[in-house]
């Protein structure tokens, strides 16, 4: 189980991004994190990972998350990586194997095989020698997903992985994530497109500054919960006089 207790994120400029968020999620599941812009979805992930100043804690299988760092994969929202970096697609996927290798060890046959398999699962084996900047946005997102595969991570956190990518890449990534969840991975995905929520996720967390609702999709995905989350009082739906 992944349990998040009293998670608050306050940035150094005083912004309270998230206050006292609580959530429990079963393992082997794929959870959508839904909420308005600026509602604290990304801060929720970063708080869980300890990448931003935070209070409260996240436990995975009853242990603090930093003990699971090597088994935790995180893919940031797009745009922060140097696409001119001298690195090939294959090497980029191989980076996923680094956390578990330990100091002074180089990736060997096992790691290269892992990377190769991961690349073929996202359908990009043919691109392995390309420099990462030569890929489209969707292809590169698939490379980052392949990297989490190569890491053999048990906990996978993705921040808006489908923004600005092609339909084919989105399909490949979604079906891969669902496979991974079946194989035992616990996956959290920040997402903004409500129309696909029911098809993509078996669990949902609705967030607006704190957790509004959490649980299986068929229960949580209700009109009432969505109105609460997106601050849409019935009034705004009435025609203006």
């Amino acid at each position: 189980m992944l349990s998040i207790k009293d998670l608050s994120v306050t940035y150094s400029n005083g912004t309270h991004a998230l206050e006292k968020a609580d959530a429990s999620l079963p393992e082997s599941s794929i959870t959508g994190i839904i909420g308005p812009n600026g509602g604290g979805k990304s801060s929720f992930l970063k708080g869980i990972l300890g990448l931003v100043p935070h209070k409260g804690q996240a436990l995975f299988k009853g242990q603090a998350l930093d003990k699971f760092a090597k088994n935790t994969a995180y893919v940031e929202q797009k745009g922060n990586l140097d696409m001119d970096f001298p690195i090939s697609v294959e090497q980029c996927v191989l980076l996923g194997t680094y956390p578990k290798l330990g100091l002074l060890k180089r990736p060997g046959k096992r790691e290269k095989a892992l990377a190769g398999e991961a690349l073929s699962r996202v359908g990009l084996s043919a691109y392995k020698n390309r420099q990462i900047g030569e890929l489209s946005g969707g292809q590169f997102q698939r490379v980052l997903i392949a990297r989490t595969l190569a890491q053999e991570a048990e906990l996978i956190l993705l921040d808006e992985p489908f923004v600005g990518i092609d339909v084919q890449s989105e399909k490949i990534i979604v079906s891969l994530l669902q496979e991974l969840a079946k194989e035992g991975a616990t996956i959290l995905v920040v997402h903004h497109d409500l129309s696909k929520v029911k098809n993509y996720f078996d669990h949902l967390i609705l967030i607006n500054k704190t957790v509004i609702a959490v649980g299986p999709t068929e229960i949580v995905y209700s009109k009432e919960n969505l109105q609460k989350t997106f601050d849409l009082p019935a009034v705004t739906l009435l025609p203006s006089s």
Binding site: L49, A69, T72, N80, F85, L95, P99, R106, P107
Partner: peptide, 22 residues
């Protein structure tokens, strides 16, 4: 030579390095 792997990962993707405990 000894820390090439760590130097490469932290230089290319600092956030991933941090999230995976480096």
């Amino acid at each position: 030579f000894l820390f090439f792997k760590e130097l490469m990962l932290t230089t290319f993707d600092r956030v991933m390095a941090q999230a995976s405990g480096l």
